[in-house]
Design a binder for these strands. Structure first.
Lengths: 150, 150
DNA sequence: ATATTTGAAGAATTTTATTCTGTATTAGAA
DNA sequence: TTCTAATACAGAATAAAATTCTTCAAATAT
């Protein structure tokens, strides 16, 4: 796919932080008129540099401010168990992110709960019914220092 | 702040996944006309349920597809060292997220690099010059399974 | 040097956001 | 219960934004 120049990069950085600017405002920021900026953004969308636009919500207000990183070890390491785990995890709303990782554990999940009680319930009742899981290890977030997506 | 009802929740869930719907489209989805939907969204923004709107970018295309979770232990556990670490880390662009955590390590960072070479350079040159760091432990992401923000 | 392509500006148009007005419903006060 | 006030909605009117179109200038290829 095509090249992207410095102005494209500026636009991407701006929109990554705030996608609500109007094209007129963006145009002023990058010293162009509205139409080329509009065209550039469409090009960045169509070429996949911009994947989507989303609203960031306040986790605390929505009773999801208790964050835990949960490490998972599978029972066995065959493809069936792995696929089963993935498909089970996709359905659990508290699991906000999940990665297949190197090291002592197989997966690292970011879990978003209301509080410790909710998390405990999540571990027992939700993870507890995922057959493919061998063991888990929880790391609790005490405070969020930096989050470019939060 | 005020209560939030089921329709508000529907709107939040929709916008969390795609903030580009028009109010007319949203209105149809929640079976209302445009004006109350518009007012509800403004209310959700002003009350802080919606924090901001952002564009999600393709990390791979932007040479940031190599993800590592990097655990950090501080040299010492006093407030000065901690503050120094936080302020240093905030300036490093490869650090996309950072949390103060429970357990063996003090902080967990999500790092976004181009490739292993870039990550190595990050560890040596960027982390290497953060005085407050005692030790690090890297966990490499082999694949992303789920990410509500990606 | 000339033709062709590219990217931009600015105007014109279409679509969307936003405001406004009126009405029905509901909660609370009398 | 009855009246009043507040709330939430629909639909129209308006303002602002997105989107398209035309033209022009600069860069590149021929």
């Amino acid at each position: 796919m095509e090249q992207i120049d410095d102005i494209d990069l500026q636009l991407l950085n701006i929109l990554h932080d705030n996608s609500k600017y109007t094209v007129k405002e963006l145009a002023k920021m990058v010293n162009l008129s509205a139409s080329p900026v509009f065209e550039r953004i469409k090009r960045l969308e169509n070429s996949g540099y911009i994947k989507k636009y989303i609203a960031l919500l306040d986790a605390e207000k929505l009773n999801r401010g208790f964050i835990v990183f949960c490490n998972i070890k599978l029972k066995q390491h065959d493809r069936n168990i792995g696929n089963q785990f993935v498909s089970d995890i996709m359905k659990i709303e508290e699991v906000v992110e999940c990665y297949n990782i190197s090291g002592d554990y197989d997966f690292l999940m970011k879990v978003s709960a209301k509080d410790m009680k909710h998390y405990q319930d999540f571990v027992f009742n939700k993870l507890g019914s995922v057959e493919s899981i061998g063991s888990t290890q929880s790391t609790f977030v005490m405070s969020e220092i930096k989050n470019l997506y939060g």
